[in-house]
Amino acid sequence: MTWYGLPVLGLLIGTWATLRFSLLAPDPPADPDNVCEIFREHPVWYDYASASEDRWGTPIATQLAFVYYESSFRSHARPPRTRLWGMIPWTRPTTAYGYAQALDPAWTEYLEANGDGWFTVRTDMEHALDFVGWYNHLTHRQLGIALYDPRRLYLAYHEGRGGYSRRSYDRKPDIQALATRVQNRAFRYDNQLQACEQEFQCWRWYQFWPFCG
């Protein structure tokens, strides 16, 4: 293949990957207020959240609470476009994208730290939950916020670790209220999960107790 064919090949592969993940993206859960029902509808999401917790330490319930408030479980969520002259769709206010609404700079840092690849995308729940866990792991390590403190973790997630250190949220009562809602949902999800988690630990045909608990 001549050199000028390589960019075309890369474009085709990128387009194929985008279409593949777009077409296969699951619908948001029918009952997003109950984590047991979320995992019953999408049992593989439990595996992803559990793997992220094992790797990075953020509890499953906290991960799901972040995704609920970031994207409402919509795989291709983006901030709405601004309007030029109040009527013409214009640019988006941020580069936030996907389940976790990861910004371009943070996502690039995540890829560099964990291995870049064609198929590591923000629209895949597995990668989004791993990103949330990775980001909170760095927040815990750099700022000392406990991984069982979803309110402060979310403030650092939303404002960035630098913004959190400068207490930028002090001037944003709406963000403080949002962080409290994230905390309340995380605690509610955690209470719900205690009643149903065992059914997701052995949901595949080749898994059986006690080796999958």
Rank of each mutant, 00 (worst) to 15 (best):
T2D: 00
G5D: 08
V8L: 08
L9D: 01
L12A: 11
I13P: 00
G14F: 07
T15L: 15
L19A: 01
L23C: 02
L23Y: 08
L23T: 00
A25N: 00
A25W: 00
P26V: 01
D27S: 00
D27P: 00
P28R: 04
A30T: 08
P32M: 06
P32H: 03
D33L: 08
N34I: 01
N34A: 02
V35N: 00
V35W: 02
I38W: 03
R40H: 01
H42G: 01
P43S: 02
P43L: 01
Y46T: 00
D47S: 03
A49T: 13
A49P: 09
S50N: 10
S52I: 02
W56Y: 09
T58F: 04
T62D: 04
Q63L: 14
S71K: 06
S72T: 09
S75F: 14
S75T: 06
H76T: 12
A77V: 10
P79K: 10
P79E: 12
P79G: 05
P80Y: 06
R81D: 07
T82H: 15
T82G: 15
R83S: 11
L84C: 07
W90Q: 13
W90K: 15
T91E: 13
T91Y: 09
R92E: 14
P93G: 08
P93C: 05
P93E: 06
T94K: 05
T94Y: 03
T94S: 15
Y97W: 13
Y97Q: 05
Y99Q: 05
Q101R: 06
L103S: 13
W107P: 06
W107Q: 08
E109Y: 00
A113N: 07
G115C: 10
M125V: 06
E126H: 15
A128E: 09
L129C: 11
F131K: 06
F131D: 07
V132C: 11
G133A: 12
W134N: 05
H137T: 07
L138Q: 15
L138C: 03
A146Q: 13
Y148S: 14
D149P: 07
R152F: 04
R152N: 15
L153C: 06
E159T: 08
G160N: 15
R161G: 11
G162M: 09
R166Q: 14
R167Q: 14
S168A: 14
S168G: 03
R171G: 09
D174Q: 10
A177E: 13
L178S: 05
A179H: 05
R181C: 02
Q183V: 01
N184L: 10
N184S: 05
R185A: 02
A186K: 03
F187H: 07
R188L: 14
R188M: 04
R188P: 01
N191S: 09
C196K: 07
E197K: 10
E199L: 07
Q201M: 11
W203E: 08
R204Y: 07
R204G: 05
W205V: 10
Q207S: 07
Q207V: 11
W209Q: 10
P210Y: 12
P210T: 11
G213H: 13
